[in-house]
Design a protein around this nucleic acid. Structure first.
Length: 298
DNA sequence: AAACCGGACAACCGCCGAATA
DNA sequence: CTATTCGGCGGTTGTCCGGTT
């Protein structure tokens, strides 16, 4: 947030390096200099631009705030889902996660995680890195986000022309490369190890409906899903199928703390998490309250 | 109206590896 | 080869602001 420079600050500035919030004048200096000369060599840039800031400070200000492609505002459901998903894979690799959310900075994602996700872990009185909390995210919050994405894309799909635009640019860029196959990992993602691991996590529980023949393993109908919404539809459908099946053989989490949880759907998961308070499970705001109420049959 | 509190986010710090002199 | 500089990253702190008491 830029603010006016106080008279004291101007008087006492001298050759001292400035710290604290950036002013409008500093922002203009930095933006204009980068527009004329490009970014990089930040220490020299800071000197040449006449900024009494460290090169590091200039770089951070540019990357996190001034860059024209920085996205601001609330995280979309798609972005939240991706953050949960990618954090589950990579942990606190914020810059790596940010690479998959165009326009979002590592700092913003880190702040989001700390202020939103960790806050809820604290309210639930469980460690954010615990398997219990991870299961909660995976079986309650992520399906919930999927549901919201699905619902919003359904409602927008009535506007046929705008259907694809309903998905944020952020996640559509990322998941456009997801190649979903009923029995094979995604074929095209950033790196093969990650894609295989992510596929395992996205894979639906293997179902074995009583009396039904086991699913064929020769099915190889690759479906290229062009948008995040499409891949979420697939995942959502898999959740629903899993729930519909009378008996399930789970292949998701092998949680020791919640051994029966893997592969369950909302109500099952809620029943398996009796230690959590209903109110504190409401992660996504007041609009989710009715959903939680319904979920728990209250 | 003022004090207090907590959430959100901007900014800084320390460390590390890569690049360069 | 070594020392220094630079850029990137993750953790932490500081600041602002709105809500509550």
């Amino acid at each position: 947030m830029a603010r006016e420079v106080s008279s004291e600050e101007e008087a006492g500035g001298g050759d001292e390096l400035r710290r604290g919030p950036w002013t409008v004048e500093e922002d203009l200096l930095l933006v204009n200099y980068i527009a004329a000369h490009g970014e990089g060599r930040w220490n020299a840039l800071a000197r040449c631009a006449g900024l009494k800031r460290t090169g590091k400070s200039c770089r951070l200000r540019w990357l996190n705030y001034l860059r024209p492609d920085v996205r601001r505002g609330n995280m979309t459901a798609e972005e939240q889902l991706l953050i949960l998903e990618l954090h589950g894979r990579w942990g606190n690799r914020w810059s790596k996660i940010a690479q998959h959310l165009p326009g979002r900075t590592d700092n913003e994602i880190k702040n989001y995680w700390r202020t939103r996700v960790q806050k809820h872990a604290k309210h639930l009185n469980c460690d954010v890195n615990s398997q219990q909390f991870k299961d909660l995210m995976r079986y309650l919050w992520m399906p919930r986000l999927l549901e919201r994405i699905h619902r919003s894309s359904q409602s927008q799909s009535h506007d046929a022309d705008d259907a694809d635009l309903s998905v944020s640019a952020a996640t559509s860029c990322i998941t456009s490369d997801l190649v979903v196959d009923a029995h094979h990992p995604p074929l095209a993602m950033a790196d093969s190890n990650d894609s295989a691991a992510m596929w395992q996590q996205h894979q639906a529980p293997q179902m074995s409906v009583a009396g039904a023949p086991p699913p064929t393993t020769t099915m190889a109908q690759h479906v290229v899903l062009p948008t995040a919404a499409a891949s979420c539809h697939q995942m959502q459908d898999q959740f629903v199928c899993a729930r519909a099946a009378e008996t399930t053989t789970c292949c998701w989490s092998e949680s020791e703390s919640l051994p029966g949880l893997a592969g369950l759907y909302y109500d099952d998961a809620a029943a398996a998490l009796p230690e959590f308070d209903v109110e504190t499970m409401a992660m996504w705001g007041p609009e989710d309250d009715p959903w939680y109420t319904q979920m728990l049959g209250l």
